[in-house]
Design a protein around this nucleic acid. Sequence first.
DNA 1: TCCATAACCATATAGTCGTATGGTTTTGAC
DNA 2: GTCAAAACCATACGACTATATGGTTATGGA
Lengths: 216, 216
Amino acid sequence: MSRVADHDERRHQVASAVGQLISAEGLNAVTVAKTAARAGISVGLVQHYFRTKDEMLLFTYHHVLERIEQRETDLVARSETVGTRIEHIVLDALRESLPLDDERRQEWRVALAFTGRAADDPRLAEVKVAALRRRRARIAEAVTNAKECGEVPEATDADTAAARIAAYADGLIGHVFADPTGMPPAAAQAALGDHLASVFTGECRLRGRAPGERPA
Amino acid sequence: MSRVADHDERRHQVASAVGQLISAEGLNAVTVAKTAARAGISVGLVQHYFRTKDEMLLFTYHHVLERIEQRETDLVARSETVGTRIEHIVLDALRESLPLDDERRQEWRVALAFTGRAADDPRLAEVKVAALRRRRARIAEAVTNAKECGEVPEATDADTAAARIAAYADGLIGHVFADPTGMPPAAAQAALGDHLASVFTGECRLRGRAPGERPA
DNA sequence: TCCATAACCATATAGTCGTATGGTTTTGAC
DNA sequence: GTCAAAACCATACGACTATATGGTTATGGA
């Protein structure tokens, strides 16, 4: 060995710079040179950590989706698990991902820019699908737990319900982002609340359990 | 005057070429030269009809959204207005816009690519918002008519219901597009059907009326 | 017929950007 | 200390692309 640097941290540092650039000027304004300048390093060093620009963008997309995901899982981890309806925890988690403040709007701006490019680029699409499926799986697990608890009827198919909830949430996010006048965040929250209420129709018979917690 | 050409038709011809290019190679692979080649004309002529590339893309976005919109309004115009529940007409119209076959998938591919860029470009965003609002307004009108008819309860706010329906539909479209395995078209149709059923809870007291038709 | 004008074309130009190249500097191991 | 390898940098290069320029061709009106 010789001189050492935290490879992963450097890559994240670059990805962060790309994210800032996208929210400032848009995805197609991103250049390697600008990225390097924003990250405070040389172009050569960016090349040292990413062989091509595409690889850099791919990693950045990963990075961004991870951040959004983290925000949601963090909230779930923080929430009270005892005596709280799973319905409310799920609602809180979904609300958390809405573009409520400017920071979250910027995050979605970046994510949406990538979504557009993912329509053309299979590798970006792959990243998107993976994130989508994790999201659905998380919701499905919550619904399953809610079924065991009694909040959701036994007849409900957890996967179907989860897929619908996720799609609805994403649609609302898109509309809040594109037209906050026609679809204010509060309206989106209300819509999600009503939809969840139509799924979580029962009373909890057992002690509360976190959405991610496995039944005993 | 002198030599004449149908300005509008030429512009649409170019826009169509751009659309083909996007669905073949993606939005960022579009160049003026390729567009001209695809349209069978010279680069100079493209410049003759569009002062800049941006203007060309803007017009193309318009063109694409118009096509998608047309598909929906055409179906509504074709549908039987007498004795048909407005709920079913709305459902048919929404289903029509799902990426069911390859042609519609391509259309959405193009639209989504632009959506991504609209996150950065205010002028593209403007076009998107306008289309969004027209869509919501159309649905709201259908809900209003359904209220008069008795299919939808009087207490329902048409605008709110319409905004929710539109957001849900768009979310489903996005998921069907991104992950047809996890969200097959049939599942999206079922989800829309169930949602509409939760809005259109009444029986029609009057003769059937088209969603766009004004009450007497 | 003629000519002004719009339709249409081929190519030059200037700028941008991704990547390659050829370095210098730092540092961990011996 | 020294040396090899990695971290890091500045710049050159080649390809691409939007747009400008300077045309030619066709045609409607006089």
